[in-house]
Design a protein around this nucleic acid. Sequence first.
DNA 1: CGGCTTTGACCAGCGC
DNA 2: GCGCTGGTCAAAGCCG
Length: 340
Amino acid sequence: MSDEHNKELYDRGRSTMYSSSLSYDSQAFDPSSYMSLTEYLQIGTMDYNSLATSFGLSEVLISSADQQGNTQKPSSGDIADCGVAGAGGETPLLTQNSSLSSSCSEPGAEEEDSGKNTVVDDHNRAKGEEEAEKSKKGKKGKKKGEKKEKEPRFAFMTKSEVDQLEDGYRWRKYGQKAVKNSPYPRSYYRCTTQKCTVKKRVERSFEDPTTVITTYEGQHNHPVPTSLRGNYNSAAMFTPSSSSSSSSTSSSSSFLSPLMMIPTLPFPHHQDLLRLHGASNNMNNNSLYYSHNYANPNSVHQYRHHNYHHQVPLPDQHHDNGLLQDLIPSSMFFKQEPRE
DNA sequence: CGGCTTTGACCAGCGC
DNA sequence: GCGCTGGTCAAAGCCG
């Protein structure tokens, strides 16, 4: 997809998005570059519950709190091109053709949609081979010009004082790098389970230091470790009242929208609350933004649920002072019509 | 002692 | 080609 097209989508998104004080207005949506969690789940080898548990959500997410003063251009090859890095101020989303160093809008994007399954199959098949090859040859063994295998990527932002958020899996830190234009370093983690190639990156947004940006890459090929899973305490989950007070600590005006219960979530420790506090509407994609809270009462996840337009009309009449004053039926989650 | 973190070095990709 | 940046490696150190 061309940069021009992305720009167009970006502008379109800006002009139509309702924004809370968390500033969702800068998010560009290129639906063809992203995949829903549902799609993501379908292509993976892991079971639905474990992945969903790992990611702690119902849908992909996010936005970075883009401050309008941010005029920095994401560096070339930066993950910010995919909108994940806070420094880029773009929309971190689950991308199908994401890679460590290539832009989400690279020409290879023609693989998506029609060729989706094929691409994924090739990807899954090649993954094991690649890993074996990598361990044999080491990082220097890769042929020049050989493109790195692209892993599905998935990111979300969390209001949290702690960087490492409990997601049910065990992680080993393998690197830390300073992030350009940010005082906060980015940490790199690998899943400690043998033969599991899932990685995650954790960084704090320099625009909003109270926000942690977590990016997952790859899919777990094993269940959530039982011992960790048991750590989740549903009794500690939010109640509407507690949620209202705690979530307002860092951005009180951002979470004034009504709460909604999501009783249909297949993972018990996430059966708490979602708050709708933003939406976008453009030709290709309608999106709603939610805050989600679990495990850590001081954290608020922001989720993006897109392509719901076949089920739920965008509640554009409910825009009120930057906040949507509407409840979205929880049943819309996990319901998705195929795009096109 | 095993598992984990820290951290400097190295490499690849990209833009200029 | 060069410089910048992100991502990864791996040795050293820490900790329970």
